[in-house]
Amino acid sequence: MEKLKMFKQGILEELPLQLGVFPFGIVYGVMAIEGGLNFLQSFLLSSIIFGGASQIVFIQLISSFTPAGIIISSVGAINSRHFLYGMSIMPYLRELSLTWRVVLAYLLTDEAYAISIKKFTNDPNNSFLHYHLLGTGITLFITWQISTLTGILLGKHLPEFIDLQFIIPLTFIAIVMPMISSISILMAALSSGFSALIFNNLDLNLWIILSALIGLIVGIATSRFDK
């Protein structure tokens, strides 16, 4: 009974976030078709990767003929924050079976983590916390699949005067801006952006890796200025 209660609580607490997730899924679906993926690839990418920003990065890079190594490492880098999420929830999930941990790892996204970590920290001794994360994760998964499919079907019917490619940087702006929360992150952002301008013409889209490295070095070097 307690299991079901936790599962339902996870679903109910996750639901309000779907208002933001649904349009994002539509944007991804539209972009995937626009970027040259076929129906099946566009749709299955949402369950194979299951990560909004990284799926859009994938589309952006694949449509500009980027080498596979850079695409895979960029997708990995975008999702690297999930590593930190995993580290922070592991103490609550240590006793679970491998199957449970595999399922929860797959469902561990920004929105599911954001809701479930609150529950985990407020009620740390509850033995059924994993059902809460299962509830938040499954809710997000279902919304993501439906919204993606909507975008894929809608994509072909949008008027041509809309430059759909421009949705990609706009989406990234909406994702990145709230992340800039300290001086060192701002410095990392500015230096990587400026580097992207300078190295714009490098072959094989190497500007991505080079700009990211410079931003990372500047961020770490200026981290002592953070409060």
């Binding site: 920003a53 990065v57 960029s74 880098a77 975008i78 690297s80 924050r81 990234f172 994702i175 990145v176 992340m179 800039i180 060192s184 992150i185 990392a188 952002a189 990587s192 952006g193 580097s195 992207a196 500007w207 991505i208 700009s211 990211a212 490295l213 410079i214 931003g215 990372l216 961020g219 770490i220």
Partner: peptide, 9 residues
């Protein structure tokens, strides 16, 4: 820093 330095460029 990693998501920022990939997405900004």
């Amino acid at each position: 820093y990693i998501p920022i330095v990939i997405l900004i460029p």
